[in-house]
Structure formats: structure tokens, C-alpha cells
């Protein structure tokens, strides 16, 4: 490039940031709601290893909160929120260098557009995320094992990405974000509708020490989380810790949910249902 330069130059010219994987906490500093009113919750600290749900009616600002996190909002987004990592303003490198960005995001609109075979696609991604070429095959294998745990239908490594079912695609996205990305923070925006094993997903995710943030309408996921952030009118209004009673409720919700799931499976496989199946449910 020639001539005067208008912009501060490459991130490579700057001293290296801390590795993203060393992050141990993120902090959300409250901003304002849709009407410009200060948010009731002024500060939330999320620790590595926690699973958090964001709950609230449609239009209450859940996805906006996720966007703030993903962009490391610095007070300039419409909500005025600020996001800190380890209590400090995150370094600019997190935004500028793809291999350092510490957040993986999966949204309800997210799809795979690539028509590469699964094997090649995951390998391509692993190559840009990981410097150690000798680990790429192991990463590919681990990603597929993880994804297959989440979906009822195993993913053929040689099928094209665009041929995957909704459930397979969603399972692969979660597996990819968890294993290939190596990001310490994973945001999942309403991923529950895609036919994945949610309880198994949460068990598996907990085995990886990360911060998982679910935007969800699903009681099962909400109650399996450590905390839930309640949204209303664009504001974070409550921060609730899942208590003893709710853990009890959670078990019962899982049972109910499993029963519904078994009815769903029977309908899917073309069976008829009788009143006997739901005896004693209400």
C-alpha cells in the first residue's frame, strides 16, 4: 500500500494480548433500557465454568444483550452497556484478530452456507483456530464425537454441510464452538428448538471449563443453569441463582419433558396415541 495511511495499522504491530483462553471472568456493567431508563441490575460478574440463562418475553432485549457481549460493548451500543474481561476493558486485539476473539456465538438464524464435506469444513476451521497442525485430526474426531452425542442421527463425515438435518447442523455448530474454537465464552441464542439432547448437551458443556450463556425460553435449560438473567423492556431486571427448590423442580421438569419427548417420537414414527398414555398427567 502506498501513500499516507489513515488508520492505525495491523494488530501484528502491537504487543501480543493475553491469550483469550486465560480469561477467568466477564463482567456486564448495566446501561439503559428501551426507554432510556437505567437498568436495575448495574453489574453482573460471570465466572469460568458457569452456565447462565437469559430469560424474558420476546422483544425484552435478550438478543441485544448477547450482541453487547459478543461485541465487547464499550458504552457506545444503543444500550450503553460495558463488558469487561477479568475486570478490565478488553484489549482491542479481541476484536481485530480472529484467532484471539474469545467468544463463539450461535444464534437462532445461524446456518451453514458452505457445501464442503463435514470433514473438510471442520478441518478448515481448525486450521485457522489452532496453530498445532498435528492436533487437527484429533480435533476433527473429538468434534464429531461431541456432535453425535447431541443428535439422534450420527453425522456422516463425508456428507456435505448443506445436506445435514437441522438437528445435525445445530449439534455440529455447538460441538465446533466448544471444541474447535477453544473460546472461553460461548453464546447460544435460542438453540433449543433444533432437536438436540439438551440435558446431555449441558452435561457435556459443563465438562469444558467455559462460560456458557443461553438465551432460552426452555424451562429445562433455564433450570439447569447456575444463574438466570431476567430481561424486561430492554433492561436486566433480576439476577436469580437457581436454588434448592428449583433444582428439585428441575428434575420433575426433565421427567415431564422426557415424557413429552417420547410422545413426540411416537408421533414421528407414525404411531397412534391413546388416552392411557397421558393418564395421571394432570
Amino acid at each position: 500500500m502506498q501513500g499516507p495511511v489513515a488508520v492505525a495499522r495491523s494488530p501484528l504491530d502491537q504487543p501480543p494480548a493475553r491469550l483469550a483462553t486465560e480469561i477467568t471472568s466477564i463482567t456486564i456493567l448495566g446501561g439503559r433500557g428501551k426507554l432510556g431508563d437505567p437498568e436495575p441490575i448495574r453489574r453482573i460478574d460471570l465466572q469460568m465454568g458457569q452456565v447462565i440463562s437469559v430469560v424474558g418475553p420476546t422483544g425484552s432485549g435478550k438478543t441485544t444483550l448477547i450482541n453487547d457481549l459478543e461485541l465487547f460493548a464499550d458504552g457506545t451500543t444503543p444500550t450503553g452497556r460495558r463488558i469487561l474481561t477479568d475486570g478490565e476493558v478488553p484489549p482491542a486485539e479481541y476484536r481485530d484478530d480472529p484467532s484471539r476473539h474469545p467468544i463463539a456465538l450461535i444464534t437462532q438464524h445461524t446456518t451453514f452456507l458452505s457445501d464442503l464435506p463435514v470433514r473438510e469444513f471442520i478441518t478448515t476451521h481448525a486450521q485457522i483456530r489452532q496453530n498445532d497442525a498435528s492436533r487437527i485430526q484429533a480435533t476433527l474426531a473429538a468434534t464429531l464425537v461431541f456432535a453425535n452425542e447431541l443428535t439422534g442421527e450420527p453425522i456422516p463425515p463425508d456428507s456435505r454441510m448443506t445436506e445435514l438435518s437441522g438437528g445435525q447442523a445445530r449439534a455440529l455448530m455447538i460441538a465446533d464452538a466448544t471444541i474447535v474454537c477453544e473460546t472461553p465464552i460461548v453464546l447460544l441464542d435460542e438453540v433449543e428448538n433444533a432437536g438436540i439432547h439438551r440435558t446431555r448437551a449441558l452435561e457435556l458443556l459443563r465438562a469444558h471449563r467455559k462460560i456458557f450463556i443461553f438465551v432460552t425460553h426452555d424451562p429445562r435449560i433455564a433450570l439447569l443453569s447456575d444463574h438466570r438473567i431476567v430481561m424486561q423492556n430492554g433492561s436486566m431486571t433480576h439476577l436469580l441463582e437457581t436454588d434448592e427448590q428449583e433444582r428439585e423442580v428441575s428434575l420433575r421438569v426433565n421427567q415431564l419433558d422426557d415424557r413429552l419427548a417420547s410422545l413426540r417420537d411416537r408421533l414421528r414414527s407414525g404411531q397412534r396415541l391413546t388416552v392411557r398414555e397421558v393418564d395421571g398427567w394432570t
Partner: peptide, 21 residues
């Protein structure tokens, strides 16, 4: 927000390959 995290990251990396500055 429309593409998978993986594709987004590959897209970013390829921009940096093509145009490092």
C-alpha cells in the same frame, strides 16, 4: 449473525490472509 461461527472465523481469517493490513 446469519452464518455459523466457523464460517465467520474462516471469513475473517481469509480477509487477513488476502489483506494483512
Amino acid at each position: 449473525d446469519r452464518v455459523s461461527q466457523a464460517e465467520r472465523e474462516v471469513f475473517r481469517a481469509r480477509i487477513q490472509d488476502a489483506a494483512p493490513r
